[in-house]
Design a protein around this nucleic acid. Sequence first.
DNA 1: CCCGTGTTGTTGATGTTTCAACATTCCGAG
DNA 2: CTCGGAATGTTGAAACATCAACAACACGGG
Lengths: 151, 151
Amino acid sequence: MSTAPRWLDEQERGAWLDLAQILMLLPAALDRQLREDTGIPHAYYQILATLSASDGNCLRMSDLARMVGTTPSRLSHAVDSLQQRGWLERRACPTDKRGQVAHLTDTGLDALRAAAPGHVAEVRRLVFDHLTPDDLTHLRAVTAKLLPALH
Amino acid sequence: MSTAPRWLDEQERGAWLDLAQILMLLPAALDRQLREDTGIPHAYYQILATLSASDGNCLRMSDLARMVGTTPSRLSHAVDSLQQRGWLERRACPTDKRGQVAHLTDTGLDALRAAAPGHVAEVRRLVFDHLTPDDLTHLRAVTAKLLPALH
DNA sequence: CCCGTGTTGTTGATGTTTCAACATTCCGAG
DNA sequence: CTCGGAATGTTGAAACATCAACAACACGGG
């Protein structure tokens, strides 16, 4: 396989170096803020947030995994951890005996509500404070083009 | 502390959901390709790549950490692992007795050269194939605005 | 010279992710 | 109905990351 690889040109190379830095630094920064202030890793926060935005504060495991962008295995371990803190519980799925449904508990909702303001402030401080409305439009155009290939 | 938090408006909320997905999926996809095809995690690849782009294929640990966007601790563990594979070696820094300098070995360079084409192809497939030159310009403008706050 | 402070890098414990293997259930073809 | 493949979740081990604590050195002011 693999004939001569098509390398990146100067434009692309520069863009990639910057983007790679952001892919490394931005999640790390969000993670650090959440852990320091609330003890919740960013990936776990996303699980709670996704559940809280769903009908009945509950979601099928596989749907949740797709929406958060994680693997079944990772989600399963994460739910274990969140369940031990009392923030989540598993219930059997009524329509599919294989299925499990993750339910956000009241305690979990409280924890999320406590964490949300600080997290949003950090997102604002690191991202939106630096972008104009035009930047936002361009950014959405780019993400819209990239997301399909990632799913 | 913390007066009423300033939440995200509709524009920002949508942009953030998309961006968060990309922050989750893109590193995971890059990592998977590299691991499957070469056994190198993405974070380790970046270390090798950064070294290979440097004068003398070597860098001070602290400089390397800054350039790759990682913590001293993470880098130290990573270098341990890369050293065991024979791809890297530590040498004492001549001008600062605390310092360590990471040197890319010939074997390491070979490994990097073997991994590079597949990785670049994946970056192209997931990112640059979907973007026009205008998109690239906009993207660079955005990353340029975000990076300072992340350092 | 000497002490205090900041820098550099490592270590080990703990937490999280990945990977491979697996059990269970669904579903469609025959 | 029944079989085989696909989908859903879980598990345990290994790899990787984070955190706190630490050791060793640099550097500047007294």
